[in-house]
Design a protein around this nucleic acid. Structure first.
Lengths: 131, 131
DNA sequence: TTCCATGCAAACGTTTTGCATTTCG
DNA sequence: CGAAATGCAAAACGTTTGCATGGAA
């Protein structure tokens, strides 16, 4: 396990992620937000901190379309993203039963891993506007 | 429906996708391959052709990590990708039962769409090397 | 003859990296 | 003190776009 330092910047990045957790922010959003209290903290440091925090399991990284979004904790749950406004929510784990994964292993021959799944659709508010 | 032209280049791109379908090639891979027979065909045209073909439903586009990969036909099936070598295979639709999607709608409040799912794991050959 | 498609090059947004400097442990 | 992290700027990456030209219909 790689030795890691508990720098001011890394702490600031983690705090911002905790604060914005519900919106699953991108690196750019974290940067913008952390900038208000730490004006000299650079975008590169945000990326490096996010990497380090994800390695340590403090936060989880999720690829959505062309950006990575972050949230606190391990990534052992699924997510659903609104294809209209980008809102993102956690989803209970049970939506994808183990039996289905086992079946998938059989029919594909792959060793399937516990993939955090990303679903997409319309959030309640966007669904209403569309309806 | 937008009028579209059946150009030489577009035909060439479609042919390459059909040929490389099993590997679910990226735009760059299509470009490299089509280049051998059409040296003046540009990468921009590859992208524009891929867009057009996807619009027409001739091919399907799949985001994997940070790249888009393409295969023939509608995208109404799932895929599994090897996290080691990038090999990609189609997966029977039944692995994810409708009942689970319905359950997901209830617990999230989202209007869930028929998302082509992307699973990840190790392909047989990479699994063997790791074992 | 029309107007969609092409080639080229330049721009885009996200992410990574080289390097000199700072700072944690 | 030494290793790891930082700031800055520049580059990498996949992808898109502006514009003048070319070619299907």
């Amino acid at each position: 396990m790689r030795r890691t330092r508990n720098t001011l910047q890394r702490k600031a990045v983690l705090e911002v992620i905790q604060e914005l957790d519900h919106q699953h922010p991108t690196a750019a959003q974290v940067f913008e937000h952390v900038r208000t209290s730490h004006p000299r903290l650079s975008l590169a440091t945000v990326y490096r901190s996010l990497d380090a925090l994800a390695d340590q399991g403090e936060i989880a990284a999720l690829r959505v379309e062309n950006v990575t979004r972050y949230c606190v904790g391990q990534s052992h749950h699924h997510h659903i993203v609104c294809r209209k406004c980008g809102a993102m929510e956690d989803v209970c784990t049970e939506v994808f039963p183990d039996a289905a994964l086992r079946h998938l292993e059989e029919c594909s021959g792959f060793r399937v891993e516990d993939t955090p799944m990303l679903f997409s659709g319309l959030c309640p508010s966007c669904a209403e506007k569309t309806a």
